[in-house]
């Protein structure tokens, strides 16, 4: 079972961002799409999510219900942590179920003490955690992530990657992750699709051996492979 992207083209005014891009993405595990910045990774995600429409080509097989972790946290400032999560569940579940699901997830990641905090009282890393949690609480089969760790410093980034890995372990989800960060790709994804600079094409599809066996030499091997491609 795969998601298919076929001959996708998109330009903004004169600028061609995607041109005849095609790829297949497995319907399981975490797939990371890597590529130089400006090659249209975010545009691709937005087309998949229905936030943007392609000029031509099609995306096939994508679920109607998907969750999205953006580069920014995109929390509603006047809603508490708990209410921000409730917001995406309204109309999908009974009120009682909304509360119990939210509480279950918050305590699963040890954040229940923050449930009444407002976003402006939280650090950037904490806000992004809530945004990731919101995507997990939402009953979607596919999760899209657009460079969710890019605004953080190294220590916070590693923390958040661990946070994400733990959640994926507990709540198995199919994930498409967009990043230009090799460490993020190697630590998280099962498959890595490397895109070329414009015109954007699939340059290479790599199986991440580090995720099969988390050994340092595998990490270094993967890093070398990616450095060659990027």
């Amino acid at each position: 079972m795969t998601y298919t992207i076929r001959n996708l083209s998109k330009s903004f005014n004169e600028l061609k961002v995607l041109e005849n891009l095609s790829m297949e993405i497995k319907r399981e595990g975490i797939t990371c799409i890597m590529g130089p910045s400006g090659c249209g990774k975010t545009t691709l995600l937005n087309i998949i999510a229905g936030l943007s429409t392609a000029d031509s080509g099609e995306v096939i097989g994508f679920e109607d219900k998907l969750s999205y972790v953006f580069q920014e946290d995109r929390l509603i400032p006047w809603k508490s942590v708990e209410e921000n999560i409730h917001f995406v569940l309204k109309g999908r579940m009974e009120n009682g179920e909304i509360t119990s699901t939210t509480n279950k997830f918050l305590s699963m990641v040890g954040l229940e003490e923050y449930k009444n905090y407002y976003p402006n009282a939280l650090s950037g890393g904490m806000k992004q955690r809530i945004s990731i949690l919101r995507a997990f609480v939402y009953p979607a089969d596919l999760m899209l992530l657009d460079e969710p760790f890019s605004s953080l410093d190294l220590a916070r980034k590693n923390n958040l990657i661990q946070f994400f890995k733990d959640l994926v372990l507990k709540e198995n989800r199919c994930v498409i992750l967009v990043s230009h960060d090799m460490d993020v790709a190697i630590q998280l994804s099962n498959k890595i699709i490397v895109l070329s600079d414009k015109p954007t094409r699939v340059k290479k599809v790599l199986d991440n051996i580090y995720r099969i066996e988390e050994r340092e030499e595998n990490y270094i091997k993967m890093k070398k492979l990616l450095e060659m491609e990027l």
Binding site: D64, L66, S67, F70, R74, I76, F87, V88, K90, G91
Partner: peptide, 21 residues
């Protein structure tokens, strides 16, 4: 606009968007 986009991706109903945003 980014918050509205988020609401759209999560298919939040119009009534909820009006009431909560």
């Amino acid at each position: 606009e980014k918050i509205l986009q988020m609401a759209k991706v999560y298919k939040v109903k119009k009534m909820v968007r009006i009431r909560d945003i």
